[in-house]
Design a protein around this nucleic acid. Sequence first.
DNA 1: TTATATGCAAATGGTTTGCAAACAA
DNA 2: TTGTTTGCAAACCATTTGCATATAA
Lengths: 144, 144
Amino acid sequence: MIINLKIVGDDMKQIKNSRQRDMILQALKLSCTHPTADELYQTIKLQDAHISLATIYRNLNLMDELGIIRKIPMGSAPDRYDPNAKKHAHISCRNCGKVCDLELSSIDAVEKELMTLTDFCAITYDVVFTGLCAQCQKNQKKES
Amino acid sequence: MIINLKIVGDDMKQIKNSRQRDMILQALKLSCTHPTADELYQTIKLQDAHISLATIYRNLNLMDELGIIRKIPMGSAPDRYDPNAKKHAHISCRNCGKVCDLELSSIDAVEKELMTLTDFCAITYDVVFTGLCAQCQKNQKKES
DNA sequence: TTATATGCAAATGGTTTGCAAACAA
DNA sequence: TTGTTTGCAAACCATTTGCATATAA
């Protein structure tokens, strides 16, 4: 791991390796569904029956702060996590909850416009679109 | 109020007027801070000491579903509410929590790009940028 | 008269935290 | 040795829900 220091208040905190953190990062990297903390917990429990959900949360939060992974806030649904820390948007299905990655080149223009409109600085964003995925569209047609 | 029907499952639900709902909508319209449910509760309690927080939540959710107001999901912080139901983005200060409205014309292009990239339909979005507001930037300089 | 809305209190559920023991460096 | 991480259980807290009562139409 490249980053091994975390700034807490005025001083640095050393980050030590941990078997659990490695497992969590590996499981997240192998996933392709932007899993929730609990979904990761269920998966990892198969390898290590004694791991705690609190450990999952602590490490996901830590790695999010360090910029190794990204937390995707999902409104009222549980947060999801993305092994790809590169800035990108997401779209989630309001019916089945599935989350897909979006590479939107036009979003750069939005960031630029934003700069001219506001006196905020150090701007980041979480863009989560919501819609109905192709699969759920089909299913809805069948039902009616 | 224009809309007075709500679709629940297969049938319509009549919406009845209520003194409480009127108070909540009025308080929200008079606000300019995108208040949380609890902030509205504190304000409205001054007029009606017996109003319940559950009533605030029920009515805010109802009016959000009816498109009269908008709920702004704030990630880990409590949801905020906006009397302006027109589609627009927000930026919030990561330090003091303040939320400001943003009219971003360039966001239309993002929606268009999105249409060409995905097979999702019925797309809505909640765009919440996060940054440091001018006031908090000043305060941070003073401290250091 | 009948369905909808309310107030209250209790439940929910994702997430965080306190603490003593385990572990990394 | 020293500070960080873990597992467990309990706490947290925004939000929702069950239920009897009040209210709108």
